[in-house]
Design a protein around this nucleic acid. Structure first.
Length: 886
RNA sequence: GCGAGGGUGGCUGAGCUUGGCCAAAAGUGGCGGGCUUAAGACCCGCUCCCGUAGGGGUUCGAGGGUUCAAAUCCCUUCCCUCGCACCA
């Protein structure tokens, strides 16, 4: 780096201090409906990585943009501070999770400050503080009061060595090993606390349709996750075991149900396993629900098909899952691929009962049965071999069969399960429950005793809360007798399901959030984060918001209006990760190039939702751009130019307006890369201007001032520095966004006209082999052609020429009018309005210097009157005639 | 298998929602030129084929269709990426 490089470290520190001293990012409590911009709060690992930098640069840039356009903005930050890594780190380093986490928070806060992120730090929250998690507990009890909390047995992943439950993500590989100690994980039944999110399944699903500000992918993932299916439940009578309920979406195929299948852990299967060695061996040894092959074992039992009255064999099969439907199913091999495969393997009858609907079907004739020997027919169709139902279409048949079979009834199934929040961990929110040694059972801790605080950390295997004897021992709030505290803590997703509400009133001591203010400030206008939270966090947050709307007077049913799932920062096409060792440290980039460079490089590299490759070269050229810009501003301020306000200046003025108009649009829709490209284009134009001629100070200064403000959301430090040089006072953070009177359509037409004209001149010079042009005339079409064009666009007459000749001033043009009319007629369907003649003239005159510079010949832009007849003839609206003197 | 999103000029990548200056933005790479003692930076042009006055031809995964007109709309087909998945 040469000596000209600007001192980014000094500049960035200077402005970070100035912003903090002036408290510029504070959102006062009396703000009215501020724009709420939020990035997903981080887990405080102690190190900001590139993903964070990208995430928070997006929100910061948007927040700054909105602030400059005059909005009040709420842009807070906090810490997802509970979680397993802190517990592990504490064990390794012989400290405790609290101290370790608080240290990490301190470091990361400082790193964020050095990136120049403008947060209202007075609203900072950390979920591991009793002031925060007290409200997790309070909410848990409110949910309980509303019947949305349940305690029941559940099967969980259990590591016998660590003596704790593991989340599915923490079980590794096919062999199912514990991610920490490599011990094989076992399934274990444990009493767990659940939040009844399934109560809201329908609303969570249906409201997705209205989340128009969310990416389709996320919406679809949530729909799949909820997985609602309409069908029917129906009982099959099994000898000695009574009725067994099966769920099916295809009750129209019931006449083709030729066997019945039970999950290996269905109560009947378990009973059979006790009696039959074969079933026992299958259930305990052979069943492989993960495998592709549908395996099963026959039983001696039969079930009665309620439609046909036939006795059909009963199998225990591993493709039947106990947590899907009822854990028992009627198998229809003729119309289900999996059932078909199983039936072939076990030689069960395959009976077609649905035929494809014949073309031009009359709605009653019973078609021939299809051949389902080789392959199941899985579509809807027309029933055959179905007794009185034969001849009905599938949909009608489903309704009638459900209606007419005694035990059948409509049923809706969801894939969504209730949310098990119990974790056998220390570093989380204690579940505020006491287990009475007498008969009171699980009793909620009274509200006035909240928060139930975590005891001191004990380094032990298993759950430290279990080892905290003194803490555990308590009295029952109901009967006063001896009791024990619940030792499970909450899933950290509980913390993040409502943190966005806490920022609104972070110090409130009487409620989780200030209701009135929340009603005013919510929902979050723009939420930004990684796609990995597409389902869990975003679904849980929606659930909490709906519960709070129903029971706590929140007047919003959705938390996030617009959601942006930002893309990954990659290195050579691969995701950056510690294990691959291909990370780029933001700290190093900030030291070497400054936060502004890092931010600007990232924002211009790609649209925020796309992945992009980190490139050191790109970073260097971004730095060079900022450096040059600083040089331009320095030069301008030190030595103000005194050029004329001439045609060239007016070209530059119009380019400034164009840039502002376009960049503003792009900022609005978070397409920072486009906005920045325009801005950099304007810098280039300004540089060309200064190179070509002595600039007009007002114009040039105006351009620089616009550039600085357009850049301010993304490169705020240097923008402050340059703003100070240009304006002398005030923060650019608080400056007004530049405005342009111009509309985008007009801007683009003008640029197009100039660009086309330059290209035409080049073509002519090239094709005609003109070595050294002496003079270039650019001639605007006469007014009557513009009139004719307008008439042609509006006209729907068959004979356009006739209509044109109806206008005196056009008819007067004689042959010329006829010729042009003919052209219009040919192009008729494709015509579009151009700028008017005066605008075209002005635009070209302003851009004439570009041609003069390029061809080193005088350029004259003239109106049709007074130009050579022969030349004018070729001029059309949007396309001036060009004459080159050789 | 189901669902979502894609396939554009050497590469990256806009545009396709609202068909028409789209041979198709921008960047990058390559070529030529300017500036410079020189290098870098910066500036200008070219970069599908043909063309001595702004023209013509062939292109936007493949094939078909709608239209005066399709990268853009419809159908079929192939391939890629990402979610979900023995879901009854």
């Amino acid at each position: 780096m040469s000596e000209r490089d600007y001192d980014h470290t000094a500049i960035e520190e200077r402005w970070q201090t100035a912003w903090a001293d002036a408290d510029v990012y504070r959102t006062p409590d009396d703000a009215e409906n501020p724009t709420y911009v939020l990035g997903m709060y981080p887990y405080p690992s102690g190190k900001l990585h590139m993903g964070h930098v990208r995430n928070y640069t997006i929100t910061d840039a948007y927040a700054r943009y909105r602030r400059m356009t005059g909005d009040e903005v709420l842009h807070p930050m906090g810490w997802d501070a509970f979680g397993l890594p802190a517990e592990n780190a504490a064990k390794e380093r012989d400290t405790n999770p609290r101290d370790w986490t608080m240290d990490c928070i301190g470091t990361m806060r400082e790193q964020m400050r050095s990136m120049g992120f403008g947060y209202d730090w007075d609203r900072e929250i950390a979920t591991c503080t009793p002031e925060y998690y007290k409200w997790n507990q309070w909410l848990f009890e409110r949910f309980h009061e509303e019947g949305l909390v349940e305690r029941r047995d559940a099967e969980v992943n259990w590591c016998p060595n660590c003596e704790t439950v593991l989340a599915d993500e923490q079980v590794e590989g096919e062999a199912e090993l514990c991610w920490r100690c490599g011990t094989p994980v076992v399934q274990r039944e444990l009493e767990q606390w659940f939040l009844r999110i399934t109560e809201y399944a329908d609303e969570l699903l249906e409201a997705i349709d209205d989340l128009e500000g969310w990416p389709n992918s996320v919406r679809q993932m949530q729909r799949n996750w909820i997985g609602r299916q309409y069908g029917a439940e129906i009982d099959f009578e099994i000898e000695d075991h009574g009725p067994v309920t099966a769920f099916t979406t295809r009750i129209d195929t019931i006449n083709g149900a030729t066997f019945f299948a039970l999950a290996p852990d269905h109560p009947i299967s378990e009973r059979l396993a006790e009696e039959s060695e074969e079933v026992r061996r299958f259930v305990e040894e052979e069943a492989d629900p993960e495998g592709d092959e549908p395996n099963g074992v026959s039983t001696d039992l039969t079930a009665t098909n309620p439609a046909t009255g036939e006795e059909i064999p009963v199998y225990v099969a591993d493709f039947v899952l106990s947590d899907v439907g009822t854990g028992a199913l009627m198998a229809v091999p003729g119309h289900d691929e999996r059932d078909h495969a199983f039936a072939q393997k076990h030689d069960v009858e395959i009976k077609p009962v649905i035929a494809p609907e014949p073309e031009g079907w009359d709605g009653e004739t019973v078609p021939d049965a299809p051949d389902v020997g080789e392959e199941a027919y899985t579509e809807d169709g027309v029933l055959v071999n179905s007794g009185e139902y034969s001849g009905l279409d599938s949909e009608t048949a489903r309704a009638r069969i459900t209606e007419e079979i005694e035990t059948a009834e409509e049923s809706t199934q969801y894939q969504l399960r209730d949310w098990g929040i119990s974790r056998q961990r220390y570093w989380g929110t204690p579940i505020p429950v006491v287990h009475c040694h007498d008969d009171c059972g699980a009793v909620m801790v009274p509200e006035e005793e909240l928060p139930v605080e975590l005891p001191e950390f004990v380094n032990t295997t298993g759950n430290p809360l279990d080892a905290a004897e003194e803490w555990k021992e308590t009295t029952c709030p109901a009967c006063g007798g001896p009791a024990e505290r619940e030792t499970d803590t909450m899933d950290t997703f509980v913390d993040s399901s409502w943190y966005f509400l806490r920022y609104i009133s972070p110090d409130l001591e009487t409620a989780p959030f200030d209701r009135d203010r929340a009603n005013d400030w919510m929902p979050v206008d723009q939420y930004v984060g990684g796609i990995e939270h597409a389902v869990m966090h975003l679904l849980y947050s929606r659930f909490f918001t709906k519960v709070l709307a129903d029971h706590e007077g929140l007047e919003h049913r959705e938390p996030f209006t617009n959601l942006l799932a930002q893309g990954m920062v990659q290195l050579e096409g691969e995701k950056m990760s510690k294990s691959k060792g291909n990370t780029v440290s933001p700290q190093r980039i900030v030291e070497e190039y400054g936060a502004d460079t890092a931010r600007l490089f990232m924002m211009q590299a790609a649209q925020p939702e796309r992945d992009f490759d980190w490139s050191e070269e790109g970073v260097r050229s971004t730095y060079a751009f900022l450096d040059r810009l600083k040089g331009m501003v320095d030069g301008f301020v030190e030595n103000e130019p005194d050029g004329e306000r001439n045609a060239v200046a007016s070209y530059v003025e119009s380019e400034i307006d164009a840039t502002v108009a376009i960049a503003t649009d792009e900022y609005d829709t978070l397409r920072f890369n486009e906005a920045l490209r325009e801005t950099q284009g304007l810098v280039r134009t300004l540089r060309q201007y200064a190179e070509y001629t002595e600039p007009h100070a007002g114009t040039y200064g105006h351009g620089l001032s616009a550039v600085v403000r357009l850049l301010a959301p993304v490169a705020p430090h240097l923008a402050e520095e340059l703003w100070e040089e240009l304006e002398g006072e005030g923060f650019v953070v608080e400056a007004d966004w530049p405005d342009a009177e111009i509309d985008r359509d007009r801007v683009e037409k003008r640029r197009q006209l100039v660009e086309n004209t330059r290209k035409d001149v080049r073509d002519i010079v090239e094709v005609a082999g003109i070595e050294d042009p002496q003079a270039i005339d650019v001639v605007i079409a006469p007014d009557w052609k513009y009139d004719a064009l307008e008439i042609a666009i509006d006209s729907d007459a068959d004979n356009l020429i006739g209509e044109l000749m109806g206008e005196d001033h056009i008819r007067e043009q004689g042959d010329a009018a006829a010729d042009y009319g003919q052209d219009l007629q040919t192009e008729r369907e494709a015509l579009s309005m151009t700028l008017d003649p005066e605008e075209e003239h002005d635009a070209l005159e302003a851009a004439a210097w570009l041609l003069e510079r390029e061809f080193d010949a005088p350029v004259e832009v003239v109106r049709a009157e007074g130009a050579d007849e022969e030349v004018v003839r070729k001029a059309e609206p949007g396309r001036p005639a060009i004459h080159i003197e050789n």
